[in-house]
């Protein structure tokens, strides 16, 4: 499935300018960066509440399809800048982590 379809179906908001016409497969939810480094898979959507710039490096190194900030969290401005440079998709939702994970799971399975 494509990220732009996911945005439409779960009503996500995009931050930054990365191209959203990109495939994803499944997801991973964690606020611990080493957990994501160790356990997330390529093309996953990553659901997190961490909004600082380092999430972009992690997503880029792991070939994460998109980062979703849950619970109304929004990325810091240098996070958006770095994501634009690295072509990392940043998305946000006011839904809590449990709820958005459930929705994405239903849509992507």
């Amino acid at each position: 499935m494509k990220i732009n379809e996911l945005i439409e179906k779960t009503n996500l908001k995009q931050f930054g300018t990365a191209d959203i016409n990109r495939d994803f497969e499944g997801g991973y939810a964690s606020d611990l960066l080493s957990d994501v480094m160790g356990n997330a898979k390529e093309k996953n959507v990553w659901i997190t509440m961490q909004t600082h710039k380092n999430v972009v490096a992690v997503a880029s190194l792991k070939d994460i399809a998109a980062i979703v900030f849950s619970n109304g969290n929004t990325p810091e401005s240098d996070t958006i800048e770095a994501a634009n440079e690295e072509d990392v998709i940043l998305l946000g939702t006011t839904k809590g982590t449990y709820e958005i994970c459930g929705e994405i799971y239903q849509i992507a399975k």
Binding site: D31, L32, L33, S34, D35, M37, G38, T48, Q50, H52, N54
Partner: peptide
């Protein structure tokens, strides 16, 4: 608080 320092770094390197 930034999500580092969970004690997973060195085990991740070893793995």
């Amino acid at each position: 608080e930034m999500g580092f320092g969970a004690g997973m770094g060195l085990p991740n390197i070893k793995k």
